[in-house]
Amino acid sequence: MSLPITRTSPILPPASPGASRDVAGASLALWFDDAEQERRAAQRLALCDLSSLPRVGYKGNAATNWLREQQVPIPAETFESKRLRDGGIVLKVASDEYFLEAGPTGLDLPPQVANFPPECFPIVREDSSIVLCGVRSKDVLQQVCGYDFSTAALDRVVYTRLAGVDAAVFPASGFPQPLVKIWSDRSYAVSLWNSLVEICAEFEGPIIGAQALFTDLA
C-alpha cells in the first residue's frame, strides 16, 4: 500500500533521484546518478539524508513497559540502543524516555494507538536524520565537532554540538561501512546539511541515496 506523499524532508535533494521509494508517506531517494558509484562512495565518504524515515518518542514512567509489550527491545542503559526489526533503532535517551527511528521500510515502529496507558506519552519526533559514512567521515567530524569520536563506543548515542548545532550523534554498527547518524532539531537541518556538504565536497564525498546503506533495498 502506498500512501499519498504528504511528508517531506527539510533537505532538498541535490537532483531528482534515479530511484526512490515511498516510506510512510514520504519519498526516500535510493540513488541519484549511479547506484554502484554511490555504493563505492559510501565506503570512502558520503552524506545521505534519511530525514524521511518515520520516528517517534515515548516518555513517562510507563513507557518502558508499554514498549516491551509492543515487542520493542529495551536497551539496558541510558544512551544505549537496540536494533528494530527492519534496521530501525531504539535509543534509551533518559531513564524514562525512548527515541525510535524506523528502518527503510518505515514499518518497524510500534503501532499508533488511540489510548496509551497512564504515564506513557508519545512524543512527536521529527528530527532530521543525516548519515555521514565512510572511512573518511572522521576527517569531516574533526572539522565540525569537538568530541573525540575515535574513542566513542558503537551503537551508543553522543549528545554534542556539530557545526554549531546541538545534535545526537550515533556511530552505528551493522552497516557495510563506518557510519554515524546525526539527529538534530529539524529547523537546523538545512544549516547543518549545508555545512556538511561543503566540507564533504572538499574531501570529494558526494551525496548518496539510501540504497548504499541498506543493501536490502537493492
Binding site: 549528545y159 554534542t160 554540538r161
Partner: peptide, 17 residues
C-alpha cells in the same frame, strides 16, 4: 577552552554548555 564534566554525558568542551 575549558572542559566541563557533565554528570551524564562526561567531559565536554565548554562551548557545549
Amino acid at each position: 577552552m575549558k572542559i566541563l564534566n557533565c554528570p551524564l554525558n562526561g567531559p565536554r568542551p565548554i562551548q557545549e554548555f
